[in-house]
Design a protein around this nucleic acid. Sequence first.
DNA 1: CCCCGGTCGTTAGCCCCCTGATCATCTGCT
DNA 2: AGCAGATGATCAGGGGGCTAACGACCGGGG
Lengths: 200, 200
Amino acid sequence: MPLLMLKDLPRYECLLKAAQAHPELDPSAAEVFLHLLRSGDEVFRVVDRHFARHQISEGRFGVLMALWSSAERPGGDGRQALSPAELAEHTGVTRATITGLVDTLERDGLVARSPHVEDRRMRSVSLTPRGSALLRRILPEHFRRMAWLMATLDEQERVTLVRLLGKVLQRASEEVGEGASGSSVAVPLGAAEVVASHSG
Amino acid sequence: MPLLMLKDLPRYECLLKAAQAHPELDPSAAEVFLHLLRSGDEVFRVVDRHFARHQISEGRFGVLMALWSSAERPGGDGRQALSPAELAEHTGVTRATITGLVDTLERDGLVARSPHVEDRRMRSVSLTPRGSALLRRILPEHFRRMAWLMATLDEQERVTLVRLLGKVLQRASEEVGEGASGSSVAVPLGAAEVVASHSG
DNA sequence: CCCCGGTCGTTAGCCCCCTGATCATCTGCT
DNA sequence: AGCAGATGATCAGGGGGCTAACGACCGGGG
């Protein structure tokens, strides 16, 4: 019966028992599902705790990194400026959220807003020296944490994990895609697929 | 240079290039890290979109499921009641957050608060009939979605994925643990471990 | 030339999540 | 008994995410 409770993952026998009451429940699928969410959350917390010491959240880091990488990008002529819409595109949040993030980042002196030269609707958000300095201070430890987290996996295991996660990721992403299978609404959950997964 | 940007995962060669500028960056570790966060997020969105149609968020669902499973639990004498502190324990959020969640759930008639019989500090939160009905309406589709998401993986791949995620999960969780290795603060990122992970 | 659809950034309002403080109550110690 | 500390729930305040709606601005078609 536990399904999205991220704490204390249920034992597999518990899932088996729950599957008796709920024929739609695939115990091994649920187990993978719960492990994926739980480990993703826990891994996120590890880096988030590091960021938090510098008053940086995931969203703030995303904005800073987008500006940083835009400055590093060869074609970008070295400018460290993106429009809020571009930032939203890169970080995967809405433009309204970018407004709020840039508000606080600007308040803290990490980025600066300036009017766009060509299009007067737009604004240019750029990294301040203080913002660059913060990134340079944060990144090495961030990289170390990623390396440390994955240090339990050898090279072969990493390849396997990326491959399996990639399969799940593709599956999860195709839902928001163009609904290729011609299912009813946005949910390609035709009975055939579910049955196939059960009999397979 | 992209690190936590969940959209458009960086190509591996890009990570290799970034690693030249940042010696702390382990490209394959970063690749696994990004895939894990990205796929976890995308999988979460799939079920979250389903919940959203019923005005249910992850937190709300966690509370409802905790009450539901407490009612189903054999030792619990069938009562569908937990204290806010127990709910916080089961769902992994703070008690203050539980207060807010229960506020809105109570407003929507899905749970009810009542004074605790033994301890006048506590309150009993219980599932209303409407709350149970909502769960019964939501769960089958939720189970189908989990099964559908994992239908791309055969049984062997599921076992492998759970095992590898388990290794990472343990690694990520031991940080918040009792600091078994006797490291400095809450971060067992001693230079020894990092070096070991590089040379290993 | 002007208008109309589309895009841009922002605002308003909501939910969820956190920390820290507050107040009520229980419990153990003297 | 009475007080101190622990433990309950809640509130205050903040950040970050969303949708919906707005005013400003661009561009193309009459």
